[in-house]
Design a protein around this nucleic acid. Sequence first.
DNA 1: CAAGTATATGCGTATATGCGCATATAAAGT
DNA 2: ACTTTATATGCGCATATACGCATATACTTG
Lengths: 109, 109
Amino acid sequence: MAKKVPLSDAALELVARRFAVLAEPMRLRLIQALFEGEKHVNALAEEAGGTQANVSRHLQTLTQAHVLSRRKEGLQVFYAISDPSIYKLCELVCGSLEKQAAKQVEAFE
Amino acid sequence: MAKKVPLSDAALELVARRFAVLAEPMRLRLIQALFEGEKHVNALAEEAGGTQANVSRHLQTLTQAHVLSRRKEGLQVFYAISDPSIYKLCELVCGSLEKQAAKQVEAFE
DNA sequence: CAAGTATATGCGTATATGCGCATATAAAGT
DNA sequence: ACTTTATATGCGCATATACGCATATACTTG
């Protein structure tokens, strides 16, 4: 397991795409809503404040990126977080942004 | 410190922008190059394989996002990673992608 | 099989952004 | 002051993608 080898172009594209998937507020809202557990599309649309069509698309994007899992039950489709690293990822970014904000505040004191 | 409160729209936009900054292969290449330490623009352009102009722009984007710091010394400008969370962020994503890849392989066995 | 409900998708548009090219700015040496 | 070197930026183009609207698909029920 070589650790210091620079990532290949293909690998970098994958990483970039991963970040891109998380780079939309609406998708983050959906992920946040799913932190509470599995939910179906209409519930998510209502909670996240988007149209059914748009939410469905975003859910598709997240599922294709293996961030969410999809489970069909009768008429409804339930989505859930399938990649546990998402939790830490969001925590890390939030923490970093909080530190930044704290620094901004310092500058005014 | 309330932890379970959903993030505000403004906060989500910030998080999204943070991810967006990391969602470009060229910027990831620059970050990766800077893992070895502070470097100046031309060195980064050569190492990352981009034009000076383009690299300069990406460095600006990363600096405005407080991912990098900028230090001017004579004619040269040195950039360095200023947000330590970047290391873990990249590790997390790489680890997650490796697991995904491993699963793909399993499917063929 | 028809009607209703939940979800997905085709299409057009508006916006964002990465890149190349040329040029501007800044600093150092002659 | 002029030239050279290092970096930044204005501009245009090409591409990606988020959203709205309408419609298609899938499943359930009467």
